[in-house]
Design a protein around this nucleic acid. Sequence first.
DNA 1: ACCTGAACACCGTTCAAGT
DNA 2: ACCTGAACACCGTTCAAGT
Lengths: 221, 221
Amino acid sequence: MPSQGRTTADRRAAILDAAMALADERGLDAVTMRAVAERVGVTPMALYPHVGDKQALLDGLLGRLLAEIALPDPAAPWRDRLVALAHGLRATGQRHPAVFPLLLARPSVTTGALRVVEAIYAALREAGVPDPQVPRVERLLSTFVIGYLASQANGRFGPGSSAPRQRRTQVPADELPVHHALAPHLDLEVDWDAEFDADLDDMLRMVSAIAARGPAGGPVS
Amino acid sequence: MPSQGRTTADRRAAILDAAMALADERGLDAVTMRAVAERVGVTPMALYPHVGDKQALLDGLLGRLLAEIALPDPAAPWRDRLVALAHGLRATGQRHPAVFPLLLARPSVTTGALRVVEAIYAALREAGVPDPQVPRVERLLSTFVIGYLASQANGRFGPGSSAPRQRRTQVPADELPVHHALAPHLDLEVDWDAEFDADLDDMLRMVSAIAARGPAGGPVS
DNA sequence: ACCTGAACACCGTTCAAGT
DNA sequence: ACCTGAACACCGTTCAAGT
């Protein structure tokens, strides 16, 4: 049984392999039906029965990406599990920086996403977050983590040290007094992975605080 | 002085008006150079001297969006100011749901973004966040707020009540035990604006906790 | 200086035809 | 059942030409 794509499932897998490679190597814009087809060695129209249209193909890439995320050891303490999950997401985001930002653009209803959500739910319950708040806090955490990693992948935080300096100098200092006052802390090179860990620490303290407050507040809706 | 676009600046403004209207009415995909040009009553090539290429046009839309965000009363307490800013962002995101998600995809180095960042910096200092941590906490807050509102605009949180139910039923209950246990809290219709306010409350408690911890930890890098 | 018209090198997708 | 080839209705952008 060679790895040749003989069955339909293999064919779909080969197409998604090609599309993911293209996205990793040349960005999302390079993922065209034509380019993917050429890489598979087939005509563009031959893709449609296997992956659907372009939108479905991108969803397929997201499914791949989600399936890659390693789940933490269920025996570990809840905090370690959430940190491990966040680090797993970061590793996946760094492996597929072009595809990762799509996570914020598409509803995450795939079964691949559910494994991850399930693991977060379990950790939050163990942390003592009241059941009615668990779904909200899960969305809060995942929104931050995905938002941060997507920002990093998209370069939203700026090129590091050069941009902030010129940002402040192109505007009169008097108009941005607080930027001026914070100048010593704005020109530093930032270690974005270290900042992610610091943010994560603050967010997990927040989870503990929510758990400590107890079920008083109740659900949000 | 009629409102006719006679000067170059007026011309650029008219083009961005047309592009924004197109984005609001028919989505980002409808914002093509050709469609914008037609709406302005000009040939596609006539846009280039005024707004640059397509990418620059989208950046122009982001600039418009950022300029719309109302700054809070500087006399109000820091917490109220941050809530007002978040609500201002939410209002803008709901006015321009197609453009808003671009905030996470582009570096926010425009002067329009700096006014907002300046206001957040000022509020965080007043809250007692140590100076070295202010830029990090600003990025933490804005990443969450933008991420949440972009998720809402993109429908990432799902269509409300129908999707979660079918998510759980298409998978054997034994494989997602925690989803199963949380079922009563997963089938509810969620008020996303109320959830945003609850999240905001938790995030601002976190800001107070960071301030209370003092400068012990120091900067992250 | 500003705009037009034609053209180039692409897209995603349809459809009828092949095997 | 699966794939091809030609075609359709689009894109963003270039370039030479008009005024």
